[in-house]
Nucleic acid binder design. Structure first.
Length: 425
RNA sequence: GUGGGCGUAGCUCAGUUGGUUAGAGCGCUAGGUUGUGGUCCUAGAGGCCGGGGGUUCGAAUCCCCUCGUUCACCCCA
């Protein structure tokens, strides 16, 4: 047992898992960049105030913020999500709308760790600022949907809802509060406490005790303004036209208070745990203004990388092979030949590795086997004296001895051509 | 923040009503094979039995505290 280990809710992503992780982010990046989104890398911490705009009735703000005072006396918080930072960046730099960006990186929330829930967790996501068109809502949802398809997940369902405009939302919350106050007798203590802070959130309760009261609660649909209802209908029609299956759930409220109009969530049916939402998002038309920018509509989503990988484990998809190495160089004469040959091979575009510490032939062969290399290049006493090398195919065990000067050509024949490595893009 | 489960080798786990020097499999290293991997055989390395305190002649084992971990509530990705 070592003296130090990772802090609660954090972990090391070790190889080979980290390679799979990076591959998943790459699939996401390829998908959204082909739709015109460009990468943004906001800082991992900001002034606490940036995140307080997420709503003071959200737990993310009131009890999960990873905040501290820095040496300059600033009240700083590690970001709990990316959306607020992206909106702050928009308000600060005023890029020309529409601004379509994507991101990937860690977020921090001080919570008790649980299945699929960490204090440092990674998300990938997109945000679009400056466009009010319902067709954009469809595009955004479709890009999330396509990502899950691209990595091979089959058991993901899409849930959509509309929370209406700010006014609709306010009237609905009022009606909801009034309803729960008259039906409060059956509600749990926790739900009653939630009711005080934000009646919407009561709909999220998973306690069986609350189910009856929630089932009878008024739904948002009747409170939508004509505009909001038309917007939502257009979004649903757009999804239909693209053949993306979805389910309208008027109980879907989501946790951040800034959402208006379209909201959606991707739920994995393959995750047994309580945390089965692998992604979610929606419109947040007032957020940029709250952060001191011009009134700007916005929409986006964030997908949990950790949870998505858990879902992939459950569905046995997006597995990965060992990284394949072209050549493993074995040198039983002390290692200097391995040093120069691997150097040369790498410069010519072959991937190559070797063993160190002058191990035995047998030991080096084992390392070659474990490395996944396709061929072993062997330099023993005989080869060293004759300036030759033995090339062994590690899957067929066939081997031939050739002059060292022929090595590049031989490998090109056996493995195919490689591009010499360049140092500039 | 609240509640339940679990902490023994790098990993997965045995360890009887408390009883001598704490085990297995996998992995790792070396040898069997004086230049050749994936199978097989042999050997070796590797443990403050999470930490602290207590009960006892004696604790991995029983009790208390603590830390970690895990699941759930809460909430969320």
């Amino acid at each position: 047992m070592s003296s130090f280990q990772t802090s609660p809710g954090t972990r090391d992503i070790l190889p080979p898992h980290a390679g799979r992780w990076r591959a998943m982010v790459q699939v996401f990046a390829d998908g959204v960049e082909s739709a015109g989104y460009q990468n943004i890398i906001p800082p991992m911490f900001e002034d606490l105030g940036v995140f307080q705009r997420l709503g003071d009735a959200t737990d993310v703000v009131t009890k999960e913020m990873y905040d501290f005072t820095d040496k300059g006396g600033r009240h700083i918080a590690l970001r709990p999500e990316h959306t607020a930072s992206v909106c702050r960046a928009f308000a600060q730099h005023r890029p020309t709308p529409p601004w379509k960006v994507w991101y990937s990186g860690p977020n921090f929330r001080y919570e008790r760790p649980q299945a699929g829930r960490y204090r440092q967790f990674d998300q990938v996501g997109i945000e679009v600022l400056g466009v009010d068109d319902s067709q954009l809502d469809v595009e955004v949802i479709a890009l999330g949907w396509d990502f899950y398809k691209a990595i091979g997940l089959r058991n993901v369902s899409l849930i959509v809802n509309s929370l209406g405009d700010a006014g609709d939302r306010g009237r609905y919350i009022e009606a909801l509060g009034a309803y729960f106050k008259t039906h409060g007798a059956t509600l749990s203590e926790q739900a009653l406490a939630t009711l005080e802070r934000n009646p919407l959130r009561v709909l999220d309760s998973k306690r069986p005790q609350d189910a009856a009261a929630i089932a009878g609660a008024p739904t948002i649909g009747a409170f939508l303004s004509t505009d909001a209802a038309a917007h939502f209908a257009a979004v649903c029609a757009g999804l239909d036209s693209l053949g993306i299956p979805y389910e309208v759930n008027e109980r879907l409220v989501r946790g951040l208070d800034y959402y208006q109009r379209t909201t959606f969530e991707f739920v994995s049916g393959s995750l047994d745990s309580a945390q089965n939402a692998v992604g979610g998002g929606g419109r947040y038309d007032g957020l940029v203004e709250d952060l001191g920018g011009p009134a700007t509509p916005g929409i986006g989503f964030a997908l949990g990388v950790d949870r998505t990988l858990l879902a992939c484990d459950a569905e046995e998809c997006f597995t990965f092979g060992f990284p394949v190495l072209d050549v493993f160089v074995i040198d039983t004469t002390g290692g200097s030949h391995a040093l120069s040959i691997t150097h040369q091979l790498r410069h010519n575009g072959f991937s190559a590795d070797r063993a160190f510490e002058a191990r035995s032939m047998k030991s080096q062969m084992k390392s070659a086997d474990r490395s996944g290399a396709q061929v072993a290049v062997i330099i023993g006493e005989t080869e060293a004296e004759e300036s030759t090398c033995t090339v062994r195919n590690l899957s067929t065990s066939e081997q031939t001895t050739i002059p060292l000067t022929e090595l590049q050509n031989h490998l090109t024949t056996v493995l195919g051509p490689r591009q010499p490595r360049r140092h500039t893009p």
